[in-house]
């Protein structure tokens, strides 16, 4: 019997909306990747800045490249970069936060004050400053986003570990001779990983937004990369005459962000063992 992902209740409205958003983006991207006759970097100057037509559904850019194809090819890049970013944040969080909770008090206090300092600066501002210092580029932008967001994960993992350490089942296990590693693996990790997973899934949307924002201000992925923020940034230059150029990449960001945020809520509901039905 699995307790975690069985459907105890009908899907909630927000789960349906999440599924609809992500499905829509996925379908559009699949179409652009698989069936579209256009390559993302195929220049056709006769079709430059064409509005949406039967031939170019999302219109074209200033070099006549098909926008649907570019957005579709940017999707795996954008989503993979975000998933990698939140995974790195969660990994750092469990490692540093767990160690902090189990370490001597002065180590814990130093790490937590460092987190306080980083959390006191708005994440996007911090990420921009770091990205500007590191230099433009998608990898540098992701490193900056990770550095700006990881403290929240560290704090979460540390607090969860501290609370769990006081539980009677941990004491019972230790009194029966369990090692620190055994406790971490069998008692702490299984109980904090769902929380970290919920945080990570809920954060994917925010990371997509942050990466796109960095791309938009020129600190993230650089043209001709079809990363969504970079696409929207290029489209901004033509916004008054060619609305489609900035709007469709923007839509992709908004729908995907919304979808992942609501998915985070659904994962939280699904993973809470106390909410699952009794057999």
């Amino acid at each position: 019997m699995t307790h975690s992902l069985t459907l105890a209740r009908p899907l909630s409205a927000s789960t349906m909306i999440a599924a609809a958003c992500l499905l829509l983006v996925t379908l559009a991207c699949l179409f652009g990747l698989v069936w579209s006759p256009f390559a993302p970097d195929a220049i056709d100057l006769s079709q430059r800045l064409s509005p949406p037509t039967a031939r170019h559904w999302f219109g074209t850019d200033e070099l006549g490249r098909d926008l649907l194809a570019r957005i579709a090819h940017g999707a795996p890049l954008t989503v993979a970069a975000s998933v990698a970013t939140v995974s790195a944040c969660a990994g750092l969080g469990v490692f540093i936060g767990g160690a902090s909770a189990l370490a001597p008090r002065w180590v814990d206090a130093s790490l937590m004050r460092a987190c306080d300092i980083m959390l006191s600066i708005p994440a996007l501002v911090l990420a921009m400053a770091l990205a500007a210092a590191l230099g433009p580029g998608l990898v540098n932008a992701l490193v900056a986003v990770i550095a700006a967001r990881a403290p929240a994960y560290v704090r979460l993992a540390r607090n969860q570990t501290l609370a769990l350490r006081r539980e009677a089942f941990v004491e019972a296990s230790v009194s029966n001779g369990a090692s620190g590693l055994y406790v971490l693996r069998h008692h702490i990790a299984p109980n904090i990983l769902p929380v970290m997973l919920i945080q990570a899934v809920s954060d994917i949307g925010g990371v997509i937004l942050a990466t796109a924002a960095l791309g938009f201000v020129g600190l993230g992925a650089q043209p001709p990369s079809p990363e969504w923020g970079a696409l929207a940034a290029s489209g901004r230059l033509f916004f008054l005459d060619c609305w489609w150029y900035a709007v469709f990449p923007g839509f992709a960001v908004v729908l995907t962000t919304l979808g992942f945020n609501l998915l985070g809520d659904a994962v939280r509901d699904g993973l809470d063992p106390r909410r699952a039905a009794r057999p």
Binding site: E167, A168, F169, A172, S173, S175, N176, G177, A178, Y182, H186, H187, P190, N191, P194, P273, R274
Partner: peptide
């Protein structure tokens, strides 16, 4: 062996019952 008052906090919510029941035998 010790049995706690509050069985809800004395049992790991994410450890299968059979593993939980045999944890001391496994550890010792």
């Amino acid at each position: 062996q010790f049995v706690y008052q509050d069985s809800a906090s004395a049992l790991n919510p994410r450890m299968a019952n059979w593993r939980c029941a045999t944890e001391p035998a496994h550890l010792i």
